[in-house]
Amino acid sequence: MRPFSYQRATDPDMAVQALSADAAVDNPLTRATVQPLAGGTTLIDLMKLDVMRPAAIVDINPLAEGWSAIDPGRENLRLGALAKMSDVAAQGEVQRNYPVIANSLKLAASAQLRNMATLGGNVMQRTRCPYFRDVSYENCNKRNPGSGCAAMDGVNRMHAVLGVSDQCIATYPGDFAQALIALDATVEITGRSGTRSMPFAQLHKAPGSTPETETALRSGELISAFVVPGRWPRSVYLKARDRQSYEFALSSAAVALDVQHGAIKDARVALGGVATVPWRSREAEALLKGQTFDDGLAERAAEAAFADAKGRQYNNFKIALGKRVVARALHRAVTMEI
């Protein structure tokens, strides 16, 4: 860890102003020298590891009063970016009408972390790629753009099979983001020119040739809220992992269905643990819509979801695993009692 200055922002304007002090104003947030601090569960770790070396930290926790509301309205669900993961997971209406959200949060991290971590920070959580997190490896296109990727032919069991490029195969590690992308959430971003909204699906950037960018957030910008349209009581989050708790997904699926008179009217499928970014499978959704559910349909949808997957030496199993997880999640969603 290196010395840094610390400032508490007591209102959004102050936060934005402080975060805009970055020398290069339009830096992607990942590269910004001024970083926002919420729960701190990712940032502090990465600073200790010398992976992130911000010159200044802006503590935005004082904004929680205005930015942590859980607001289940008639038309949509609004979640403040500073709401704690544990609070949202435990909220009754979220559990009833958005089980995929509640479970994606409940199955993430540990109780201690969920009590600290905020929703906004959670979706911004950076990859767990061990080569990214250890600065003694020079080859990491995320840390040192253009230096190569040590994971490509290294220990890559946890790495992505979807959305990969020849520059980076690091997995997006979170769970909650899969629920958001599946449910067509929008994200509210507060910056110098006020508040703007964008589809959550546009927040994360696949690595392509710029794996260091990661998200559409620029320095000086903050996530202030998420808005989830509609209600999705028939939704599940299924997570396969090495141990029963406190572990990242090897493969997960966020599935939401609208089944009417036996037919799938609308279907949402998102994948976790297998992709470089929160991953929505419109291919699987297209196959499901308008159909009557059976196991064969689930398998075809799962097949479609992984049609473009690229496995490597140690993570190739994720393709077969991911398909089974998707099929099982669909089955659970169809058979769940609501």
């Binding site: 540990s110 767990r128 080569y131 250890d134 290294g154 090495d242 141990r243 708790s245 406190y246 572990e247």
Partner: peptide
């Protein structure tokens, strides 16, 4: 490579 207690897995109580 997995030289830390997040990536070197040991059981949690739920296991």
């Amino acid at each position: 490579v997995n030289d830390n207690l997040a990536d070197y897995l040991v059981p949690v109580s739920a296991d």
